[in-house]
């Protein structure tokens, strides 16, 4: 059994490698890979890379323009901006990965249940997905934040709640398409339990597109985190976040314009990197999902 499965898996792999090479030969995607790798390394090794503590206040040196001691300058409390930007990568990545992972797991489970379960349950779940999906996301997020108070936990909850429906819909559609295929029917005839069928046999075949969708949503989540933190409704100070750096810079945009420049740049680079990488990955992993990408 397993050797057959291995054989089946290895054939597309062999065909994929040339495409991986083709993908990396596209300069735009190669740059995107570099940006994302740089982002991950910065986030992972922040304490070693950052020259100062991101929360160390030094009021005597506040609003210093970029210099040899402070490459990006200092903010209104004299904190080193470069260190805050470096730690901001950590905040952004942590929130993006945790909330996308939570939403992915919820979406996967509910999608499998909706696709494989009884029809009445499917109906209820699809209605739930549809109503959550047709909410104006930002309005819903603001409402929840008013009630629960701003903070990292609320942020993750809001992002997970608003993004899981599209994942669930994707998994449901895939499950519906596969549930009557020969190998699943064979499993049913062998009296395999529904959890076994779902997790051992269906899941590996439906998860690919979900992973692509999740990776493409990471820049969106980074953007939402930064946006809400900019409004003062995301991560709480003094935790460094690109959004709150932008807000601090925005309040002193006339006296210290370098703050918004350096606060926004990593955000722009990260979202660009992830978006182009997502585009490349999608073309590479699943050419069928290709939508209007220039040849």
């Amino acid at each position: 059994m397993s050797s057959v499965a291995e054989l089946g898996a290895s054939i597309p792999d062999r065909q994929r490698f040339p495409r991986l090479r083709a993908m990396m030969s596209d300069p735009v995607i190669a740059i995107a890979v570099l940006l994302v790798a740089g982002f991950f390394i910065t986030a992972a090794f922040a304490p070693w890379i950052a020259p100062y503590s991101p929360t160390k206040i030094d009021v005597l040196n506040k609003l210093q323009p970029p210099s040899a001691a402070h490459w990006f300058g200092t903010d209104h409390l004299g904190r080193d901006l470069l260190s805050r930007v470096i730690y901001g990568a950590r905040t952004a990545l942590m929130i993006a990965i945790v909330s996308v992972a939570i939403a992915g797991v919820i979406g996967m489970l509910l999608g499998l249940i909706a696709g494989y379960g009884p029809r009445w349950l499917d109906g209820i779940l699809v209605l739930t997905f549809d109503s959550l999906n047709s909410l104006p996301m930002i309005m819903f997020a603001l409402a929840i934040i008013t009630v629960m108070g701003a903070g990292t936990g609320t942020l993750i909850l809001v992002i997970a709640m608003t993004s899981f429906p599209s994942y669930a819909r994707l998994i449901r559609a895939q499950t519906l398409a596969l549930k009557n295929s020969d190998y699943i029917v064979a499993e049913r005839l062998l009296d395999a339990s529904p959890p076994r069928i779902l997790f051992v046999h269906l899941l590996p075949n439906v998860i690919g597109p979900l992973i692509i969708l999740l990776s493409m949503d990471i820049p969106v989540v980074i953007m939402v985190e930064a946006g809400l933190s900019f409004l003062g409704l995301g991560v709480r100070p003094p935790t460094p976040s690109w959004g709150s750096i932008l807000y601090d810079g925005y309040t002193s945009i006339r006296s210290a314009p370098y703050m918004v420049i350096f606060g926004g740049l990593p955000l722009v680079l990260a979202t660009l990197g992830f978006t182009f990488l997502g585009e490349g990955l999608r073309d590479y992993l699943d050419p069928r999902m290709k939508v209007g990408r220039p040849a």
Binding site: Y250, I253, P257, G264, V268
Partner: peptide
């Protein structure tokens, strides 16, 4: 890909 509020801040600047 670029967030609209960053575009807004940069154009404001």
């Amino acid at each position: 890909a670029v967030p609209s509020f960053v575009v807004a801040i940069y154009s404001l600047l």
